[in-house]
Amino acid sequence: MAQNKNALIRYKTIDKCLQNKYRQWTLQDLVEACSDALYEYEGRDVNVSLRTTQLDIQLMRSDKLGYNAPIEVYDKRFYRYADEDYSITNIPLTENDMTILNESVEMLKQFKNFSLFHDLDGVIQRLEDTIYVEKTHRSAIIHLDKNEQLKGLEHFDSIYQAIVKQICLVLSYRSFKAREPIQVQFHPYILKQFNNRWFVVGREEGRPQIMTFALDRIEQVDYNLELDYTTQDFNGDDFYKDTYGVTVLNDSMLMDVTLKIDKANAPYVLTKPFHHSQVLLETLEDGGVIIQLRVHLNMEFDRLLLGFGPSIEVLKPKILRNRIRGRFKLAYEQYLQETPKS
């Protein structure tokens, strides 16, 4: 057991002793009580010295732990709390405590439908009650992106449990282009998040290639206990190492990409790289930069570049440069037209 945990057990034991005002507590009594408590937790004798207990009392008296315990000595040998109602468990939360609790609760609530967190429901409610009682009236410091209308999250836990227990799924899946859903016998490997959407990645029964299904397009999830689950030694990190987003293409679309970033956007791209392969090739006289990265030329990467507008220029490869130029040309021609009347 870690020493800091032993210390917490001693503090709680001393606190419990001193709350008992019907008994006189000597230093030796407190030593024995701490030794008994540690034996109960560890199942073995732990030698608590007089010196250790004296230091514990000094720390509890100080504000180092936030206790400021009113421990006093009377009759030159007995210890007690000057305030009979005091306990280290009744210390009001500090402003920093409130901030940490508030943000922790908000993060935990993001997973409220996840079975691994079901046992935390009561804890979260008690924390929320504590925060309400001692409310600081400050707005949240940490603000998390969330979309309460995001579809498919009701399937998250079923898919997660199937991956953990290695069970095949039967997915009822309808793509944006399909009129009717299809039934897919699926071996799920990982759950992946990108751009505030969740995807399940795995292999369809009878097909060797890895497939990706968006949770928001899944209409129903069932288990197939009769089908043998196979992993094929799938590794998510290896599978996505050359990809921005979730669409993994074949090696013919894996290319070195050279980009010119203007001065205004260079710091953002350098401090938050597009991909782990990104390297700085040159810093230009006007403050812009030229970077290079090696990625699949998928639609997610196209959208990333298009989102920067004229701030990014594709220098290489030619296939990507022409593709992005064509998209901007279409957009330009579209905006040359008169604004349609509403």
Score class of each variant (00 low, 15 high):
243 T>H: 03
229 Y>F: 12
211 M>Q: 15
233 D>A: 12
206 G>H: 09
208 P>L: 08
223 Y>Q: 13
226 E>A: 11
212 T>I: 07
207 R>K: 15
214 A>K: 03
208 P>D: 14
224 N>T: 06
240 Y>K: 03
219 E>F: 06
211 M>D: 09
207 R>F: 09
221 V>Q: 01
237 D>T: 12
237 D>P: 08
239 F>N: 02
237 D>K: 13
229 Y>V: 05
230 T>W: 10
225 L>E: 13
204 E>G: 07
232 Q>L: 10
235 N>R: 12
227 L>G: 02
236 G>Q: 11
217 R>P: 03
210 I>G: 09
205 E>C: 10
208 P>R: 11
216 D>E: 13
236 G>M: 08
229 Y>T: 02
225 L>N: 13
245 G>H: 02
217 R>V: 01
233 D>H: 14
220 Q>A: 14
245 G>R: 01
213 F>N: 01
213 F>M: 02
223 Y>H: 13
209 Q>S: 14
223 Y>E: 13
239 F>T: 06
229 Y>P: 00
233 D>R: 13
220 Q>T: 12
207 R>Y: 12
242 D>M: 05
218 I>M: 05
233 D>I: 10
220 Q>F: 08
244 Y>I: 08
228 D>H: 14
210 I>Q: 11
214 A>F: 03
245 G>P: 01
210 I>M: 10
205 E>N: 14
241 K>P: 03
242 D>S: 07
240 Y>D: 00
209 Q>M: 11
220 Q>L: 10
221 V>K: 00
244 Y>S: 03
204 E>P: 02
240 Y>H: 02
235 N>D: 15
239 F>Y: 12
218 I>D: 00
228 D>W: 10
242 D>L: 00
243 T>R: 01
219 E>A: 08
234 F>S: 00
243 T>C: 13
233 D>Q: 14
216 D>K: 07
228 D>K: 15
225 L>Y: 07
240 Y>C: 01
221 V>D: 01
224 N>D: 15
216 D>C: 06
241 K>I: 12
241 K>C: 11
221 V>H: 00
227 L>R: 11
210 I>T: 15
210 I>A: 09
215 L>P: 01
225 L>C: 06
234 F>H: 02
211 M>N: 15
214 A>C: 08
231 T>Q: 12
232 Q>G: 09
244 Y>K: 03
209 Q>N: 15
240 Y>M: 04
233 D>Y: 11
225 L>K: 09
212 T>Y: 03
226 E>I: 05
245 G>K: 01
245 G>Q: 03
232 Q>C: 11
237 D>E: 14
225 L>R: 14
235 N>Y: 05
239 F>M: 04
231 T>V: 08
234 F>I: 01
